[in-house]
Amino acid sequence: GHAQGPRLTLADGRELEAAFVLDASGYGRVLARLESLERDPRLEPRMALFGHVHDGIADLAPPAAGYRRDNILIASHPTHPDVWYWLIPFANGRASLGVVGPRELIEPAAEDDAQTRLWQWVMEEPRLAELLRDARPANAVQSLGGYSADVSRLHGPGYALLGNAGEFLDPVFSSGVTIALESALRAAPLVGRELTATRDEQRPDWASEYEQPLRRGIEVFREFVTAWYDSRLTDIIYHPEPHARIRQMISAVLAGYAWDT
Rank of each mutant, 00 (worst) to 15 (best):
W121D: 09
L132A: 10
E104C: 10
R127G: 04
P126F: 02
A140K: 14
P102F: 00
E104L: 14
L105D: 13
E107K: 12
A109K: 14
G146S: 08
Y147I: 10
L144G: 14
L144T: 08
L128H: 01
A138L: 10
M123I: 06
L144E: 13
A109H: 14
D134F: 11
Y147L: 12
G101K: 01
A110Y: 04
A135V: 03
A110D: 10
P108K: 03
L144S: 14
G145C: 10
A140Y: 14
A114V: 12
L131H: 00
G145Q: 03
P137Q: 06
T116A: 12
G146K: 08
A129Q: 15
G101Q: 00
Q115H: 07
L144V: 15
E124P: 00
L132H: 02
Y147C: 00
D112C: 07
V100F: 00
R133Q: 12
E130C: 04
S143P: 08
Q120T: 14
L118M: 10
E111D: 12
A138R: 01
Q142T: 08
P126A: 02
L144I: 15
Q115A: 15
D134E: 12
I106F: 13
V99Y: 11
A129L: 08
Y147R: 13
T116V: 06
V141I: 15
L132F: 04
I106A: 07
G145H: 09
R133D: 01
L144P: 03
D113P: 01
A109V: 09
P102W: 09
D134I: 02
E125S: 09
V100D: 05
A109Y: 05
M123Q: 15
G146H: 12
R127F: 00
R136W: 09
V100G: 04
Q142I: 07
N139Q: 12
A114Q: 06
R136Y: 04
E107W: 02
A140D: 15
R117V: 03
M123S: 15
I106G: 11
E125N: 11
E130V: 05
L144N: 13
P108M: 04
E125V: 09
P102A: 05
L132V: 01
E111N: 06
A110M: 06
Q120G: 14
T116W: 06
E107C: 09
A129S: 09
L131W: 06
L132D: 08
Q120N: 14
R127S: 05
R103N: 13
L118Q: 02
P102N: 03
D112F: 00
A114H: 03
T116C: 08
D113V: 09
G145S: 13
A140S: 15
L105R: 13
G101H: 04
L144M: 15
A114D: 06
G146F: 03
V99P: 11
P108C: 08
L128R: 00
P102I: 01
A109Q: 10
Q115V: 08
G145L: 05
G101I: 00
R133S: 13
L118F: 05
G101S: 01
A138Y: 04
E125W: 00
E104R: 12
N139F: 08
R133E: 10
A140F: 13
W119I: 07
Q120L: 11
P137L: 09
W119K: 09
G101L: 01
P108I: 04
P126I: 03
